[in-house]
């Protein structure tokens, strides 16, 4: 297979007032690979995930660049065809499983909906598939879970349910948007292990959005560091941790707490690093000429 699973090229997006929130972002996710997208709040990492899934809020407009799933450029398709392709090839593991699940419906129908209504599977096949995946995520009482309402399950359980649902339709690409941020560390480890296990078994590519360099180190093969909607550094994960090139990446690593080296970690980010970044971004914005601006107003 030659085409990458996901290819984003020169993606820029602006708010209604013309301020750029994504600045010519390019990245690829190869089949079966985990790419971490790491940055602090406001870096635009979730926005990239939303752009891939075609669910950007209306206030944000993509003004240039392209997104291709397995070689098919989404922008060249009619909206309906684009949504159908996204629906068939991708899935989302969201940050907060409680808000992602409908509180007034049982888990079972929520999990099979996508298979039955969007992919047109018959009910029995969908049910078998869901049970197989619940078993894969080590849910031992599938009947009870399928009959439960979301509030009756713990946070870790809900996240397992959503992981099972994400893998159920055999997507080529999963966007995982901070899937363990709301969880306790021991539960986080279980969930990360499950995601990686299923990802390897199914050969799924994952765009893994996170703010935690620790999580990046443990689950990804490639990493993209973002700041203010701009790619600061991209590398193989092992290479990035061995020798981070950009001062911001180095500063981020030094700020991350480590219990093994308490005095050397938790260093506040140097003002000079941030000033350098602002200058980089100002230069990039000055030289940027949008080649396909939107119509000007909504």
């Amino acid at each position: 297979m030659s085409a990458p699973c996901l290819e984003i090229e020169g993606l820029s997006a602006t708010l209604a007032n013309g301020v750029r929130v994504l600045r010519s972002v390019s990245l690829t996710v190869e089949p079966g690979e985990v790419r971490a997208l790491v940055g602090e709040s406001g870096a635009g990492k979730s926005m990239i995930g939303k752009a891939v899934l075609g669910v950007l809020p209306p206030s944000i407009r993509v003004v240039e660049g392209r997104i291709a799933l397995e070689g098919t450029e989404l922008g060249k398709l009619a909206p309906r065809a684009s949504r159908a392709l996204i629906g068939a090839r991708t899935a989302l593991i969201p940050q907060d499983p409680l808000t992602a699940l409908n509180p007034s419906r049982r888990i079972g129908p929520q999990m099979t909906d996508r298979l039955v209504k969007i992919l047109g599977w018959d009910g029995t096949k969908a049910d078998q598939r869901i049970r197989k995946l619940l078993d894969d995520v080590r849910i031992r009482e599938p009947d009870r879970v399928l009959r439960s309402y979301p509030h009756e399950l713990s946070g870790g359980m809900r996240q397992r349910v959503l992981i099972a649902a994400a893998f159920a339709a055999e997507p080529r690409l999963i966007v995982a948007d901070e899937p363990t941020t709301a969880l306790d560390v021991t539960v986080q480890k279980q969930i990360l292990r499950l995601i990686v296990e299923l990802q390897r078994e199914h050969g799924t590519a994952i765009l893994f959005v996170t703010h935690d360099l620790g999580v990046v180190a443990k689950i990804s093969q490639k990493v993209t560091v973002l700041y203010a909607g701009k790619v600061v550094e991209q590398a193989d994960t092992a290479a990035l941790f061995a020798s981070p090139q950009h001062p911001y990446t180095r500063a981020l690593m030094a700020a991350t707490p480590r219990y093994t080296d308490p005095m050397a970690s938790l260093r506040p980010v140097d003002e000079a690093v941030l000033a350098g970044l602002s200058a980089e971004i100002a230069t990039a914005d000055r030289n940027w000429k949008p080649n396909a601006r939107g119509s000007g107003h909504d």
Binding site: K189, A242, M253, Y259
Partner: peptide, 14 residues
């Protein structure tokens, strides 16, 4: 302590 993901490469951690 073991569940904390340190920002270091460790293939055996998971």
């Amino acid at each position: 302590i073991a569940a904390i993901p340190l920002p270091e490469i460790d293939p055996d951690w998971l």
